[in-house]
Design a protein around this nucleic acid. Sequence first.
RNA 1: GCGCUCGUAGCUCAAUUGGAUAGAGCAACGGACUUCGGAUCCGUAGGUUGUAGGUUCGACUCCUUUCGAGCGCACCA
Length: 528
Amino acid sequence: MKKSVIRAIQETLQREFVLEKPTNLSFGHYATPIAFSLAKELKKSPIAIAEEICAQFDLGDIFQEVTPIKGYINFKLSESFLDQYATWVIQNEALFGKDDQTETILLEYVSANPTGPLHIGHARGAVFGDALARIGKHLGYKITTEYYVNDAGNQVDLLGLSLYLSGREHILGLHVNWPEEFYRGEYIIDLAHVAKTELGSTIFEDEANIKMLSIWGKDKMLELIKSNLADVGIEFEQFVSEKSLYDKWDESFVKLQKNDKTYEEGAKIWIRSTELGDEKDRVVVREDGRPTYLAGDIIYHDNKFQRGYDRYINIWGADHHGYIARVKAAINFLGYDEQKLEVLLAQMVSLLKGGEPYKMSKRAGNFILMSDVVSEVGSDALRFVFLSKKSDTHLEFDVDVFKQEDSNNPIFYINYAHARINQIFSKAEKTLEDVQNITLENLSEEAHNLLFSALLLPEVLEDAFNSRQVQKLTEYLKNLAASLHKFYNENRVVGSADEEKFLKLFAVVALSLRVGLKLIGINAKDKM
RNA sequence: GCGCUCGUAGCUCAAUUGGAUAGAGCAACGGACUUCGGAUCCGUAGGUUGUAGGUUCGACUCCUUUCGAGCGCACCA
């Protein structure tokens, strides 16, 4: 729709221009502020220029009106243009909003340590990444989703130790001297009981079993994480193990060395990340020869770039923001274009319960489990809340508010609009086939604008994806639902002279809601 | 102390990325059918966009100042 409009305007203007949406639909469906930028050049007032330009326009099939308002040029689309598009959309629902982008993208997200279940902070990145993937794929991008499993570092050993000690205390009933650092969540005790069942309680009798427990526990935790994700309908296409890449270190290291981006000092190997804006050079190999976490990420990104995608998107927790510079530097040092890597940050989520703040601490174990929240508010509500806010700003929400399934929750409002349309169709005893070929003409201003709004979805999707701001889509869906409810309250449909026209109009609205919801991982309800 | 992110209605958040009168929901108050399901709609009230400057036709958006918040500042991941 937008493309046709741009083309039509281009023909008359014969120059570059900015196309935007007017603040008020009563002005028009699209607008351009071009008269302002021409004012200086032509030495005339924007108002006069806008008037002259409008006079030049041939309305053609597309436009119903081209009007100047305070220097802005406003375009109103014709009913027949919108109607043709509406008919096509109804007949091709699966193609609505599809685009033919060709870029290949590797999207990495969640990548939480396999040492415990997902908590509410992970959920935000998870839901955001999933929505981005769904929208991007709809637009034609070749997106591969990937989860990086940190199965190589200390934290896995710590998991084994925690399981071992927990088993000794809770299963063998022995006194345990807990070290300063260990995983203390209740899931550790649960897991120790599983270990007892699967491996026998003798496993807790010998320290030599810690190593084995850590590997066993890591696999169990990964399974748990996968099931946490499955509960909200998220499935990854690929899992990449940090450990499995470790023997490629030499290969990556040689590249860095060849480019003279590493040096040895104090028996450690450092990378010259300050050259590209990092605060300090970083150690990549310790004195004892063990590579650091950064080394793991260097190998991983080397591996990613070898796979030859056009673009790489990583969604990280905001606490990793200081890490971006060094990873980008490393990518550059390996000889790749670091511009291809885009790091999106998912900010912290502060959870409230009855107004009381919850402080989350990953190690201490008093964090909120994602699965708990999902079972309280449901996958749909969780998704919608998280996707309604910009991912990179702090978000606060109270679980209690989303416990009740009422109008406080916007997802119910949207579903209600969808279900309402469904109801009207059955009340009118009509089907889509009955109305899809009805011609939409002589519509009221409100109907005309509602039709336009419903057909706007493709542009919203494009905008949401390109700016990586999924809240544009949720905002759109809320607004469209609101327009529908408003229209419903002001117009009688069943039995009216315009019944069939309105039904066709509503069908497009429902379709737009349905497709939009689907792209954020929610199935629209036909009945409430 | 340094760096990153941010500060918008009482609360939770938007604002077409520099455009028109800064908008929604919740909370408050007042209204609307003999329901195409009121799980809806309409209205009222609420703002010097933290503060102080600057850039230009035009600033919530960009630059500078200052105050405040969160997160980082490992040879942990």
